[in-house]
Simulated assay, not measured.
Amino acid sequence: MHHRRDWKAFTEKALNGGLLTIEEGLSVLAAADDQILSILEAAYQVRRHYYGNKVKLNMIINAKSGLCPEDCGYCSQSVISKAPVPKYTMLDKETLLAGAREAMARKAGTYCIVAAGRGPTERELGQVIEAVKEIRETMPLKICACLGLLGEEQARRLAEAGVHRYNHNLNTSRSNYGSITTTHTYEQRVETVEKAKAQGMSPCSGVIIGMGESDREIVEMAYALRELDADSIPVNFLNPIPGTPLARAERTPAAKALKTLALFRFVCPSKEIRVAGGRELTLRTLQPLALYAANSIFVGDYLTTSGQEITLDHQMIEDLGFEVEECAL
C-alpha cells in the first residue's frame, strides 16, 4: 500500500465533482507518513479553491451538562459515565447571552448552543429560543443549535427563532454504531439532520475518530456525510475520558489525524471542515498543519474538556499567513 501516488489527481477529482473510490480513500489513510506534506498540499489546493486562506472560528457553550439518559460510550455526560463532570440544567438566557458576547470577543463567527440529552424538553426549547431571538437582534453571530433528536415542529420553531444551523453528528459508521450507543440508532440521527434541513436550517454533522472503527469505516463516514450534504463537518478525535467506556482507547496518531482531514476534504470538497474536539490532544504540535486541509476550528473549551488558550489559536492562524473569517450574516 505504501507506493507513492499522484495525490494531485485527487485534487483534480475533487475540483471536478468526482468521488474518490473506496480504494483511493483507503490509500490516503494508509499512506506512509513521509507522504503527509504531499497529501496536505493536494488537499490544500481544494481548500484554497473554495475558502482561500480564511479560517472560520466556532465557539461552543455547554448549555446543559450531564443528566443525559443516553449511553454513548465516548461521552462524559452519559447515563453510564462515571466521569466527574458538572451537572446542571439548561443555562438561563443571561448566561447564554454572555457566552455569545464571549464568542464575539474571540472573533468566532458561529456560536454553538449545545445541550446533552436525548432531545429538548418544551422548557429547554423555550429557553434556547428566547436567547436566540435576543442574540439575533443584538449581535452579528451565526447560531448553531445542538439539542439532540428533534421533532418536526421543534425544528420549525428553532428555524423561525433564527437558528442558522443544526448540529447532529453521525459520530461513527453505520456498522460501528451499535458498539458505541444502544439507546438510539444511526437512522434516528440521519432523520434529525434531514428534519433540520427541511426547515431551512443548514445541516452540520460530523464524526469522532478513534472509537475502534476501521479505515474502511472512516471512508464510509466521509461518504455518508457527502450523501447527507452536511454543510459543516466537525471532525472530532476521541479524547478518552476516564470514567467512560472508551477511557482506555488509544490516542489517534497526529499523522493519521492529518490524513483523515485530507480525506474528508477530498470527499466533501466544498464543505466547511472543522478540526473539532481532541484537536490539541491528538495533533499536539502539528495543529497548524490541519488548517491546510480543514478551514474551521473550535476556539475555547469543548463540552467537558478544555481547549487551548485563544491567543494561541489567533497566532497560529496569523503565523500560517491565513486570516480569521469575519462573520458576514
Rank of each mutant, 00 (worst) to 15 (best):
H3F: 13
R5V: 10
K13F: 01
A14K: 07
L19Y: 10
I22K: 14
E24S: 12
E24Q: 15
G25A: 10
L26P: 06
L26I: 08
A31K: 00
D34N: 15
Q35V: 01
Q35M: 13
Q35G: 00
I36L: 15
I36N: 06
S38F: 13
I39L: 13
A43V: 08
Q45E: 15
R48V: 01
Y51I: 06
K54W: 06
K54C: 00
M59V: 03
I61N: 02
N62L: 05
A63N: 03
C68P: 02
P69K: 06
P69S: 14
Y74H: 04
S76A: 15
Y88N: 13
M90Q: 04
T95Y: 05
A98C: 03
G99V: 10
R101M: 11
R101F: 07
M104A: 12
R106G: 01
T110Q: 14
I113N: 06
A116D: 06
R118W: 04
G119A: 10
E124S: 12
G126E: 15
Q127P: 01
A131R: 00
I135F: 12
T138I: 00
M139P: 06
L141N: 10
I143E: 02
A145P: 06
A159T: 11
G162C: 12
R165S: 13
N167I: 06
L170F: 04
N171C: 05
T172L: 09
N176W: 09
S179P: 00
S179V: 02
I180C: 08
T181W: 07
E187S: 12
Q188G: 02
Q188R: 12
V190S: 03
T192S: 13
T192W: 01
T192D: 07
M201S: 03
S202I: 15
C204K: 07
G206M: 03
I208D: 04
G212C: 12
E213N: 10
S214M: 08
D215N: 15
M221Y: 01
A230F: 00
I233T: 09
L238P: 01
L258Q: 06
T260C: 12
A262R: 01
F266P: 05
P269V: 10
E272N: 14
A276T: 09
G278F: 00
G278I: 02
L281M: 14
P288Q: 09
L289E: 10
A290Q: 03
L291G: 04
A293C: 12
A293V: 07
N295L: 11
I297S: 06
V299W: 04
D301Y: 01
T305G: 09
L312F: 10
L312V: 12
E323R: 13
E326L: 11
L329F: 00
